[in-house]
């Protein structure tokens, strides 16, 4: 097990280094730079600015400098947001993104596995049909359609919920969280429900469930103690990809609901060529996804005794 973790970490390190390099050189290959404003600035100012941020150096030198700083835990200053380090911006945005992401994940896992199990237990009934239709709707409606529609309906039309503007200074009250969290979680609820239904149906057909029933165990014991335990395994291995999907989904959610999270900063930064901020967000999200995948794999091994990590 420790060997397995060790090998995975060993692979993760070069992966992250390659991601950093690719992102860095791609950004710097771009025509146009962070100091291209609508109003052209005098050449002297421009050169001063370039020198201040080390951008008058050749690209490989900039890369080396960046890596040296990175290893000291310094993500550099933002090129666009005045007087702020990338680390500060990320630290401000992270709680917002993390809250939404974690809430969505919990909601998706609970609702998805519940709906999927119910559909499997009532296979080919109207209940099953309703859940599968809902799942199809959830998969087919992208969050950037669902978001505005939900905001229009619950925010403007019914006036039950605030439509956006999750401000950390106002505090992240539950009513402000509901719409973004639900919008982000919906497609994942749908996918998990389909996954859970398929795996539950397969488990229910297996011999040991028949044995458990034949022993005379009550239906609820058979389902909760025997079926659910192995039916949940495919769901666990989906958690890694699910977290990646939630992180990319959060980009849109933060734009739709105007939330000051990392995703929104990333989009703004990419459009304005704020190199250091883009790099910072890519590094943090890539590491996060790799770590979450590793955790999901380990969890899968702990829960499934058939898997042995040599």
């Amino acid at each position: 097990m420790f060997g397995f973790i060790f090998r995975r970490v060993l692979i993760a390190i070069p992966t992250i280094l390659v991601i950093i390099a690719v992102a860095f050189f791609m950004m710097h290959a771009a025509p146009g730079g962070p100091f291209d404003l609508e109003r052209p600035m005098p050449d002297e100012t421009r050169q001063l600015l370039m020198a201040r941020y080390g951008m008058d150096q050749p690209v490989w030198k900039q890369y080396l400098d960046y890596m040296v700083n990175l290893f000291q835990g310094d993500l550099g200053p933002s090129l666009k947001v005045r007087d702020k380090d990338v680390a500060e911006i990320v630290a401000e945005g992270f709680p917002v993104s993390a809250t939404i992401g974690i809430c969505s994940m919990i909601l998706a896992v609970i609702c998805g596995s519940f709906l999927g199990s119910v559909a499997a237990l009532r296979q080919n009934t109207s209940g099953d049909f309703a859940v599968m239709t809902f799942a199809m709707v959830g998969i087919s409606i992208p969050p950037f359609v669902m978001g505005p529609i939900l905001a229009l309906f619950f925010g403007l039309y019914l006036g039950w919920l605030p439509t956006g503007g999750l401000d950390p200074r106002l505090g992240m009250t539950p009513d402000r969280l509901i719409l973004p969290v639900v919008t982000l979680a919906l497609p994942q609820i749908a996918i998990i429900a389909r996954l859970m239904r398929a795996s539950m149906i397969e488990v229910l057909r297996s011999n040991y469930i028949r044995t458990a029933r034949a022993k005379g165990l009550s239906p609820s014991t058979v389902i909760v103690r025997h079926a659910l335990r192995s039916a949940i395994l495919p769901l666990v291995s989906y958690l890694g990809p699910a977290s990646a999907a939630l992180i990319s989904g959060s980009l849109v959610i933060e734009v739709v609901f105007q939330l000051p999270g990392i995703g929104k900063h990333f989009i703004d930064a990419a459009l304005q060529r704020d190199y250091t901020l883009v790099m910072g967000v890519v590094i943090i999200y890539a590491s996060l996804i790799i770590v979450l995948n590793l955790i999901a794999d380990l969890l899968y091994g702990v829960l499934n005794p058939k898997v042995k990590y040599e």
């Binding site: 950004m27 980009l251 990419a270 459009l271 060529r273 890519v282 890539a286 996804i289």
Partner: peptide, 23 residues
């Protein structure tokens, strides 16, 4: 397949976004 596994766990949309901005 190991290469595919590694790529699987990456936030690709970020690279697509950078690509679109850059080119």
């Amino acid at each position: 397949m190991r290469f595919v596994d590694i790529l699987y766990s990456l936030p690709f949309i970020f690279f697509v976004i950078i690509l679109m901005v850059v080119f």
